[in-house]
């Protein structure tokens, strides 16, 4: 049974780690309506699972497990559906000061050019990550998030050596695909 105290604690932790919601939903759903759907599903599943949360496990590891499980299931379930209708309710997670960030970029042209190149690179990286199979995508997300191999192994349920091997292979694959896309293949 969840109490108001538990609810407050849950919401505080969720707010603290909101970036995980954003990154996972961005990697597994396309379009803002689908991404918001996924954020909602992950938030609700986190809330359902929260009474069973063991504080000995880092909250981030626990959150990644739930979020990735929901996201992979969502992707498999909704894979065939084309997103056509926008979500009617207000989004749970949104970027609120994007205009401010863009204004800062405009006011500093030299920095802005570097930022533009960086944004393009990240966009290409996003596309390459999105093209990976669901489990590889989870692995790459955790790797880019600078999680240690032991932590990735704990989230996914693999051995540490297996994680290392798979990351090396994925790095090679992404490098190859990156070069291909750069050469316009």
């Amino acid at each position: 049974m969840t109490t108001p105290v538990q609810q407050e604690r849950f919401l505080r932790l969720l707010e603290e780690h909101q970036r995980v919601l954003y990154k996972v939903s961005r990697s597994y759903a396309r379009g803002s309506a689908d991404q918001d759907d996924l954020v909602q599903e992950i938030s609700l599943q986190l809330w359902r699972s929260f009474p069973g949360y063991d504080p000995r496990l880092p909250f981030l590891t626990w959150m990644y497990r739930v979020a990735l499980n929901v996201a992979i299931s969502y992707r498999r379930r909704e894979g065939r559906r084309l997103s056509k209708q926008p979500v009617a309710v207000a989004p749970l997670l949104e970027i609120v000061t994007q205009e401010d960030a863009q204004a800062t970029t405009r006011s500093a042209p030299a920095e802005g050019a570097g930022a533009l190149q960086r944004d393009e690179d990240l966009q290409r990286l996003d596309q390459l990550v999105q093209a990976l199979a669901p489990l590889d995508r989870a692995l790459m997300l955790l790797y880019l998030d600078e999680q240690p191999h032991a932590e990735i192994a704990a989230v996914l349920g693999l051995s540490v050596s297996n994680v290392g091997t798979k990351i090396s292979r994925l790095k090679r694959r992404i490098r190859r695909d990156w070069n291909r896309s750069a050469n316009g293949d």
Binding site: L11, L14, E15, R19, Y22, Q40, S43, L44, L92, I95
Partner: peptide, 17 residues
């Protein structure tokens, strides 16, 4: 992201939990 993300806790609390 920390500066641009806004998680609407109130929405989640009010209607969804």
């Amino acid at each position: 992201l920390d500066s641009v993300l806004k998680f609407h806790v109130k929405l989640l609390r009010d209607s969804r939990l």
